[in-house]
């Protein structure tokens, strides 16, 4: 197969970027998308040019490192598939592809297709945990947990933090990510003591980071490699309203 690539090249955070064209004449349909870029990079490098920087690590769709836009879709055309698991058989000979980094104010471009997603970590720092020090845990089977709660919690916890939801959202919103983190913990009995403060603080942090808001387009859900449901966002909204309007002030809340 032959592919024509237009790849966003940008030397650093403050550098001006532009698309550069590459011709890939010998692409095998069995290659993964990243392997095609590996082969291209080997060629670029042997010509003494800087290879295309892109993030990747596990290459089995679980670490969440990889991801960029392929022809306007986060992680490319195949649903529920990270770009590292996407294979070239999803494309046709002669296709022209546009590769762009995730674009959001809260995800500044570091280089080429690599962006800075530490904003996600700060959202988790705001409350994405259950405060339990090592050693203080009760016996694991002391409290039964409804299987459907555990399953739903797992569905949300499957988030790999890749950022495709933000990238695809017309508003560059991190609602799906934040809501998934909240749902994972808020649906479990262990998560109840901190449910309200967590709901408030993580939403506030999401705003502080400069992400947009949710207007229920559901583009995020469509590109999420783990198929995380937008219904988590509704739960987040409700939790935030409960936390800020319908409960008494708490220590550390944004209330006066």
């Amino acid at each position: 197969m032959r592919m024509k690539l237009n790849v966003w090249r940008q030397n650093g955070r403050d550098a001006k970027g532009a698309f550069q064209k590459y011709d890939c004449p010998d692409v095998s349909e069995h290659m993964s998308f990243l392997e095609m870029l590996d082969v291209l990079n080997e060629r670029i490098e042997s010509e003494g040019q800087d290879p295309i920087a892109f993030e990747h690590d596990c290459r089995e769709g679980i670490c969440g490192s990889c991801g960029f836009m392929i022809n306007g879709a986060a992680h490319g055309p195949q649903p529920r598939t990270t770009v590292c698991q996407l294979h070239m058989r999803s494309f046709k000979d002669g296709d022209e592809l546009w590769l762009e980094p995730w674009r959001a104010k809260a995800f500044p471009v570091v280089r080429d297709l690599v962006v800075d997603r530490t904003a996600f970590d700060r959202i988790v720092q705001a409350g994405g945990y259950i405060s339990t020090n090592t050693g203080s845990a009760p016996e694991a089977n002391a409290a039964p947990i409804r299987k459907d709660s555990a399953d739903k919690s797992f569905d949300a916890a499957a988030c790999i933090g890749c950022g495709a939801c933000v990238a695809m959202c017309p508003n560059a919103s991190a609602s799906l990510f934040t809501a998934a983190k909240l749902a994972h913990l808020n649906l479990l009995p262990q998560g109840q003591p901190e449910r309200l403060i967590r709901s408030e603080k993580m939403v506030v942090q999401m705003d502080v980071e400069g992400f947009g808001h949710c207007t229920n387009h559901s583009d995020c859900e469509a590109v999420c490699p783990k198929g995380i449901s937008v219904t988590n966002i509704a739960m987040m909204n409700l939790g935030y309203v409960q936390a800020t309007l319908l409960s008494s002030p708490r220590e550390g809340s944004t209330d006066d």
Partner: peptide
């Protein structure tokens, strides 16, 4: 055995039986 206790307390959603136990 302590690891499982700790992980459950942190909210690790291990597989469960219908009765709610691990």
């Amino acid at each position: 055995v302590n690891i499982i206790d700790q992980a459950v307390a942190q909210g690790v959603p291990f597989a469960r039986e219908y009765g709610g136990l691990l």
